[in-house]
Design a protein around this nucleic acid. Structure first.
Lengths: 353, 353
DNA sequence: GCGTGCTATTGAACCGGTTCACCGCAGCGG
DNA sequence: CCGCTGCGGTGAACCGGTTCAATAGCACGC
């Protein structure tokens, strides 16, 4: 079976009595060979069952593997369950497709064994890691990379949105509608996986950039309107799914009086929150308004359609990938994409007293 | 800048005056070295800014890259827009994650330039290609592979479902409810991208296995109930999205009398069809019943929730990946996963005359 | 008949490691 | 003091190509 010596470029060369360089040229630089020779080579190769230069070996000399890596903060399989991540992936893959690049999904996070050895030319880090020490593996490998939605790192590109402003706009929308009692359906603030109400002290220690910024945005808007932030309950749940949103909202709505407006840090959380409201016998937006963040496709399809902050997920993916392909290498500059409030049916003035 | 000779394993070796083998061992076989030597090596490496053995080179000697490839029939970016494909990907990625493998998304289909050179140990083909000549590139490269939802190929594994039975069950459900006038919302039958009503002749030439089998299933059930298949309109649309389903359904529902039951070949098509029905002023399921295929998450969330044929997408992904990792290599055997009718709210008896 | 200019082909170095048979040497039992 | 064992370390072959300076062969102009 495998005893049979693998047929390599050298096999073909010696079968024809030509040099290896010639065989190599037949594949990579046809114009340097006489058509006759080229045909002989290709023909013999076919006869011998030689499938062409081994990509790995070729790559070793050339120094390029023609692949973009993508590392996820959360487990990779989660990546596919989060619709926002899927849109992002779609953006990245569009660029890869156009540029004839493979897209390598790197499991286990930025410091996994896979990240250490994955065969890629550059990597997109779609994760919100702590600024210090995060991505150490990637940095050490010396690969060009861009961080999306995460911290700014020296030498790396950065793509993100203005989370704070997005959150602020969402909160202001509810304030404008006349709401005064708010609850926040929060993504994790720290890595400890704790669930529950996050007090001011915990809020101050928030490690994830997105969570921190969105929280800050809510707060700014609410305080600017003259309300007391300390009166706003922040319910933190983990991980990111609808379930989490449902549990957080259930806790918020069980309070008396319950908030009339829920600020959800993502659409998935918001969608879960809407379901929880229904379970609690509350109408959205009649009894309680909900605003999300992300504008994933399911937001528009929800009942009622979800008011949310749109961010250009696909565009973020495209941009991140493009930055890595720029001729001059990665400049460590920052790209902020626009956010926009999309008002739909899940928000309304608070119920009359 | 790059003038500075890259620091390689040899650099470290000569800096220490030891052999390259020793440095290599420090990383790969610590137990073969005295702790003292190992520390010296690691320390010097760090000092020199050596990030460890170049994965590419390591891989060349070892012969394994620790990566699984995934090739898509449709453009890769489509892959992410189809929720069924996303679930499948999730399944594959779970296995990759568990096994510390990278997951390489190969753009441009099974015969693209990327497929020719992608650095992978084995590949999952998630595509319905013609049995003859499809996947030629993969076959030539001699990579182990498994085909999902496509044709059986010698030497390759196969994972699929019983599409025919699934379709049959769906149709029988509608028949049991008393329906007699059917319309089929079809995925593409041929590669020509044609849209419109597919007559019997075109149906007979169907190239895609899934389309062919599902059509056959519908037909068997309907004929078994004593109805005339020729009276069933098959509306083919391309590509696979909701829009396509909407357009097909609009055409079907514009007929007079319109069908009271729509058999959609996928949930995305079905969801589009439901929207089209609403646009046409028809109630689902009051005026028209709709049944899908796939049971994607959005099916249960739809209004009304969609009756559909469930297939285990995630499980398919897991199985396909697992087959490639089996110690003995890929056995060319066939794995059929179960399908199951899920009755929800989109089907009901036809309206009274 | 000879220098010139091409083109087709080649040899050797190189990409950056891994592996394995082998060897020197320290410690140990006798 | 000797031979044996086993550990720590080494040299050389190998993985499968690419690249580039050099060369051989040939037509051409003069």
């Amino acid at each position: 079976m495998d005893r049979a010596r693998r047929v390599t470029l050298a096999t073909v060369a010696s079968a024809l009595g030509v040099s290896r360089a010639t065989v190599s040229n037949a594949y990579n630089h046809p114009e340097r060979l006489s058509p006759r020779m080229r045909n002989r080579v290709l023909h013999t190769a076919r006869e011998l069952g030689y499938a062409g230069p081994h990509p790995l070996a070729a790559t070793l000399s050339r120094g390029r593997v023609n692949a973009l890596g993508l590392v996820h903060g959360a487990p990779m399989s989660f990546g596919f369950s989060d619709p926002a991540a899927v849109l992002f992936l779609q953006g990245v893959s569009e660029v890869c497709e156009r540029e004839d690049l493979a897209l390598v999904l790197i499991a286990g996070g930025p410091d996994s064994a896979v990240a250490r050895v994955a065969l890629v030319d550059a990597v997109v880090c779609y994760c919100d890691v702590p600024a210090e020490g995060g991505l150490a593996t990637i940095v050490e490998r010396g690969l060009p990379f861009v961080v999306v939605d995460g911290p700014r790192l020296p030498g790396a590109g950065h793509v993100g949105i203005d989370d704070r402003r997005g959150a602020e706009v969402a909160a202001r929308h509810l304030l404008d509608l006349g709401h005064t009692r708010f609850g926040v359906v929060a993504m994790p603030l720290l890595e400890d996986g704790r669930e529950g109400t996050a007090d001011l002290e915990r809020q101050a220690r928030t490690r994830y950039r997105a969570s921190r910024e969105r929280l800050a945005g809510y707060r700014e808007a609410i305080e600017a309107a003259g309300h007391d932030w300390a009166a706003v309950t922040v319910e933190e749940r983990s991980p990111y799914g609808r379930d989490a949103g449902g549990r957080a909202a259930a806790a918020l709505l069980a309070r008396d009086p319950h908030p009339t407006a829920l600020l959800a840090m993502s659409d998935e959380l918001a969608l879960g929150a809407m379901a929880a409201a229904a379970d609690a016998g509350l109408a959205v937006p009649g009894d309680v308004s909900v605003v999300g963040f992300d504008d994933v496709p399911a937001a528009a399809d929800a009942h009622p359609p979800l008011t949310t902050v749109r961010q250009p997920h696909r565009e973020k993916g495209r941009l991140a990938a493009s930055l890595l392909l720029r001729p001059g290498g990665v400049h460590d500059d920052e790209h902020h994409l626009p956010v926009e409030l999309v008002v739909r049916g899940s928000t309304a003035p608070p119920p009359a007293r």
